[in-house]
Design a protein around this nucleic acid. Structure first.
Lengths: 212, 212, 212, 212
DNA sequence: GATGAATGAGTTTTCATTCAT
DNA sequence: GATGAATGAAAACTCATTCAT
């Protein structure tokens, strides 16, 4: 069956932005819980209050498309996280990194926007489909890299560390918070933030120069 | 597809230990590359040199069973990693943790036994099916926790940190090495190990008391 | 124009004759290009400038009905083709047949009214639904048959040929002109007409009595 | 869902040639009766004695593939039709054409291999998919064209006719025999053949030189 | 007149699993 | 030990059709 003619109409929720966002959020939830492959269009439709999986295709072009849209939304939100207020922007590397950790956790991890989960599903997509998202991703990486390099230049961070490796591992840790942190659990939200700030800042610190 | 009854009797093919291990390894590869849900019995059979996916059922009882067996094998190997030689066993927390990092990366990450990937697939299993594996997992956790607590007691690690959180994050970092480390890449194997040791040990270190 | 008699009640939109004819023409195009089964209501609606496939149902009762209406329109046009001017009506069989060929190609093949295509889709309809159209079809057949019989009676056409078979094959050839004739192609329009006249008239001619 | 991994095994009936041919024949029947688009995999499977449409996918890669295979088989049979015995090969154009008509009707029309029907479905395929079949098709065309040109050179056929147009129309007529000829009908098989021979040979004949 | 939003029935396709040989 | 052949359940997706607004 031809895919070309699919969704000749229905510019995917452009019509009703609110509904479209609802659906995206529901899909995020389901993909998050089951993984992309195991998630079914049927379940997403049902949770969206539709009687039928076919109805979902009024909004989406394909399941893959839904994942793509989700990734796009997540990264757009991610980029918004890079904005610093003036005081922070003028601070030293460690301070800026600590502030970034708070912002990132606030926006990315607690919202229903589990980037780590989505990244895990990248394999389900052809590389070219990520083209739209790559610049956004790069922007996030560039930001953290710049902060790390500032810290190194200032002598706070270890000059021998590889910023690429560091930024990758930092994002990795933050983005997988949901794997261990439970809002209702033993550890408070502030304690969780604190753990990350302490662990990461000390982890990067220059030898003989404690982060605190 | 969910199987009804779990393991009333072991599949006959288990008798041929070598073949069975071959198949496990191939399955590990395929699950690793595609994820459990997206992997097909067909492909595993094909890579095992079988002409027909049905043939695989001489060895396995079900796809799910294969995953289970894989997890078991991985954790068995993991537990073997906990063994320290006498000199290390007598050392302080940081030294023991650094040594563990080397052993774990060596055995778990470089072998085709990517625990992190498997953990990701836990959701595909009913909790009860992990009963066999839980003690092994607990042993690994207990070991690292003990080392951290030793470090805290000795004053090397920060007394205010939560050992559970720390151990989880440490395993998380190590087990996902494959996501960024490429054997043929810019960073040498030793540099990779070094990064982990430095980052983790400094990250856990007591305030005002640098790890080095 | 009246809508198909099948309808319990005509769709409201029939009132706007112009719009209705536009839609019929568009549907003819789409059915022609894709075939009835492969054509979608969506595409017809889109080409008609409607934003939503549902909107088309203001004009039509069902997709099948659209096909039916199309067939009716085509046959009505076909019957108009049977009209001869006085000079031709008074001529011999071959002359009348040659003249008919021109008229038929002019009206049926060059307009967007590909009867052959529609006939091909008859199978998509229940026989009873063609009741309205059958007399028109019979009229066309009767006309050509009469001309052939006249030719036979006059000794121009082969007395041993079966007029039914002949008329069927003639219509078949003419109605499928679009399969090989391209207006912008190597063969001119006149050459195409010429080919048909020559081939068919000679094909029917009495033995030992060339058509020319 | 990925199409690439489809049918990793099952070299489509290479294993059981007989069954594969059975399935092809059944598919030909169904496509013939309903048209490619309207035909369902379900029905083909059912008629093949399979309980389930899924079972059919042991033999085929896709519905489209089935059509393709069908076309290939039909054209292979078509090419076999071009073989002439020595006496015929040495004859003049009209004789050879008359003989070809018999062979073609015998092999192509009466077998369940309705080429015309298949050609009609070409639109359902991307042009590149017909690459395998094009040479066979060309061979058939070339044969008939050569015979026509021989007839023209000998003075039997009209020198002003376009061989391409002629051959197209000839195939067209023959391949659609099923539309009007009923084995149990009024016209005998021989009479049907006779009609074609007479109509076509006279139709091509040189002016003033009757075919008989 | 037209549209957004749905619905249900059906389509092709995939896949784990079974089993006689 | 292994294979060919199947099966059933479920997946993604399509599409004619309806209807309140």
């Amino acid at each position: 069956m031809k895919r070309a003619t699919t969704a000749a109409f229905a510019p995917r929720g452009t019509l009703n932005e609110t509904r479209w966002n609802e659906i995206l959020t529901i899909a995020a939830e389901v993909f998050f819980q089951k993984g992309y492959e195991a998630a079914t269009v049927r379940e997403i439709a049902k949770r969206a209050g539709l009687l039928n999986q076919g109805s979902l295709y009024y909004y989406i072009k394909s399941k893959e498309d839904l994942l793509l849209a989700l990734i796009e939304r997540a990264y757009t939100q991610a980029v918004a996280t890079l904005e610093e207020d003036d005081a922070v922007a003028a601070s030293d590397g460690p301070t800026r990194l600590a502030a970034f950790i708070v912002r990132w956790i606030d926006k990315m991890v607690l919202s229903n926007n589990p980037l780590a989960v989505l990244e895990r599903e990248f394999r389900s997509l052809e590389p070219s489909q990520l083209d739209a998202v790559r610049p956004l991703r790069d922007a996030c990486n560039a930001f953290v890299r710049a902060v790390i390099e500032q810290g190194i230049a200032e002598g706070s961070f270890d000059g021998s560390l590889d910023p690429s490796v560091a930024l990758h591992n930092i994002f990795f840790l933050l983005n997988n918070t949901h794997r261990w942190y439970r809002p209702a659990g033993r550890l408070s939200y502030d304690a969780m933030i604190d753990w990350y700030q302490t662990f990461i800042l000390r982890g990067l610190s220059a030898p003989g120069r404690p982060a605190d």
